[in-house]
């Protein structure tokens, strides 16, 4: 399976944020999406999640049977600021999600098993989510987005404000999850991208470019990424 974006465009007023996005993402990989502030990473994600209308272009899954348009079930979108329904307990939210998606979740586990995946303790499962910490809300959001096993997972700086322990847990979880799906991980932190991601993609002047690793060692690779990011500001 591949996820293909062709000639995607999006402008705000006269500012062309996404000029001509063309890229093919491969199954089983985590892609680190790097770009400077205001480069349009969140706009790209919002377009792919159909939260905002694109001005042009298309995106689809390329599978052995041909092309397939994306549907809401295909995409999991984890925002940098976790949003969860705060009037529910973690347990109630998970139960609700499992009940309404029982026909689409292929191999459902028990709620306890799911909570174990993200290390949420039993006493926290029964707390209202309005009393959850930022990290716990983030875990819940991630959990809901991965249970249905969407083929495309969009992660918008999900680890930036987590403490080191939770961030390591989440990294481990993402590495387990990448099989049979495409993960697009946007971040400002280059070390995090290099540590976690299989490929690095730069959003540069409204276009996506892959950074070829070639035979570079990690320091040279970093320099190359920074050079490419700098080009944007001079462009």
């Amino acid at each position: 399976m591949e996820f293909v974006i062709e000639h995607l465009q999006k402008s705000f007023e006269k500012k062309e944020v996404l000029k001509d996005i063309n890229f093919t993402f491969q199954e089983g990989k985590i892609y680190g999406l790097l770009g400077r502030n205001g480069a349009g990473k969140t706009t790209l994600f919002n377009c792919l999640n159909r939260d905002i209308r694109t001005d042009g272009g298309t995106f689809y899954f390329s599978v052995s049977e041909g092309h397939r348009q994306t549907s809401p079930d295909d995409i999991g979108y984890v925002l940098s600021t976790p949003t969860v329904p705060e009037f529910l307990t973690g347990e109630e939210f998970l139960k609700f999600f499992l009940e309404i998606n029982e026909t689409t979740i292929s191999s459902p586990k028990t709620p306890e098993e799911y909570f174990r995946m993200v290390n949420i303790e039993p006493e926290d499962q029964r707390k209202l989510m309005k009393d959850y910490s930022h990290g716990m809300k983030n875990k819940m959001q991630m959990l809901i987005n991965i249970i249905a096993e969407p083929p495309l997972l969009l992660l918008d700086e999900p680890l930036t404000s987590l403490d080191v322990v939770v961030a390591e847990e989440m990294k481990g979880l993402l590495r387990q999850l990448k099989k049979e799906r495409i993960i697009l991980f946007s971040t400002h932190i280059m070390e995090l991208a290099l540590d976690l991601c299989d490929e690095i993609v730069i959003l540069n002047q409204g276009r996506l470019e892959e950074v070829e690793k070639e035979n570079l060692d990690s320091s040279e690779f970093k320099d190359k990424i920074i050079e490419m990011l700098k080009e944007e500001s001079h462009g």
Binding site: N49, P72, D73, D74, I75, G76, Y77, L79, T83, V84, P85, E86, F87, F97, I100, N101, I144, N145, A148, P150
Partner: peptide, 18 residues
């Protein structure tokens, strides 16, 4: 404020039937 603001960020919640 207390429900759809968060739920509308989840793709599954925006399914027409739901």
């Amino acid at each position: 404020m207390n429900c759809d603001h968060s739920m509308l960020t989840y793709s599954f919640y925006k399914k027409p039937s739901f």
